[in-house]
């Protein structure tokens, strides 16, 4: 039984079929990307996994149980960050921590919040409002919020799409660091357990997908989009960006993905 199981999922909006017969098995602890042209329904699929919308047909199972609406075991980092603009960076994370870790003491909640703000490097900026910080910092806040709620699956919707190349690279590294459970802190380890987080991210950046992921699910073009080939990324971890970019394996995977996206699942002439 797969950890996250998407079986024969359809999504229709009125007479328009956005997704048709989507099947995917996600393993516990892997990083997997959904890649495809914009408008192919990647985000629609992600929002169904998040439980924010329901499949018209088919089923999504997490650890064998069908999903019922959204829940904190599936942490979401939204495409536009979705921070509450009237709360500070600290409060944005804290309110989620307090809601999800209800049974913990106030001290523990504060400690969890602090820890994750430090991991994403925002502790110094914790009193600022979202309107006062850069896009990268907003994204870090959203990431800290999602991570601090200790999800089983982290769902990222084009998480670094709106950022400049440098910030993007830094945040990708930070994400991997957290995922790799390189957490020294015993308290956090106790909360998190020693299992790696499962990460599912939506992207249209091929390099990002290869650098971050174990597998890449390529989506065909809509309407009636579906998951075509799932490409394995057999690059060893930890990965070094420069080494990776020069490696043969990287070039081959990139060629294959490009071929899939531009030839096999090419955008139909409009």
């Amino acid at each position: 039984m797969a950890f996250l199981n998407i079986s024969s999922v359809y999504k229709r909006f009125g007479g328009y079929t956005a997704l048709e017969n989507v099947n995917l098995n996600v393993r516990q602890g892997e990083v997997i990307a959904l890649i495809g042209h914009s408008g192919c329904g990647k985000s629609t699929l992600l929002s169904m996994i998040a439980g924010l919308s329901q499949p018209t047909q088919g089923e999504i199972l997490l650890e064998g149980r069908p999903l019922k609406g959204p829940g904190p075991e599936r942490g979401v980092v939204f495409q536009n960050y979705s921070l509450l603009p009237w709360l500070s960076v600290y409060q944005n994370v804290k309110v989620a921590v307090a809601s999800v870790h209800r049974e913990r003491t106030d001290g523990e909640k504060a400690r969890i919040t602090e820890k994750f703000l430090q991991i994403v490097g925002l502790w110094e900026h914790r009193h600022k409002k979202p309107g006062e910080i850069s896009g990268g910092m907003k994204q870090r806040t959203a990431l800290a919020r999602a991570l601090a709620t200790n999800p089983k699956v982290l769902l990222l919707d084009e998480p670094f799409g709106a950022l400049d190349a440098l910030t993007r690279a830094t945040l990708q590294d930070e994400l991997l660091k957290v995922w790799d459970s390189t957490l020294e802190d015993g308290f956090l380890r106790a909360i998190w357990g020693s299992e790696r987080k499962t990460i599912l991210l939506v992207t249209h950046d091929i390099e990002e997908a290869i650098y971050l992921c174990d597998r890449i699910a390529v989506m065909s073009n809509g309407p009636a989009a579906t998951i075509g080939k799932v490409v394995e990324v057999p690059l060893p971890r930890p990965r070094d960006r420069r080494e990776m970019l020069e490696s043969r394996a990287y070039v081959e995977i990139k060629e294959e993905l490009l071929h899939l996206l531009t030839v096999v699942y090419a955008r139909k002439a409009a």
Binding site: G51, L52, G69, P70, G71, S82, V95, A96
Partner: peptide
């Protein structure tokens, strides 16, 4: 977006 945040993070 804000309603989604509240739903995902199980706000009371």
């Amino acid at each position: 977006d804000y309603r989604n945040v509240a739903r995902v993070y199980a706000f009371s």
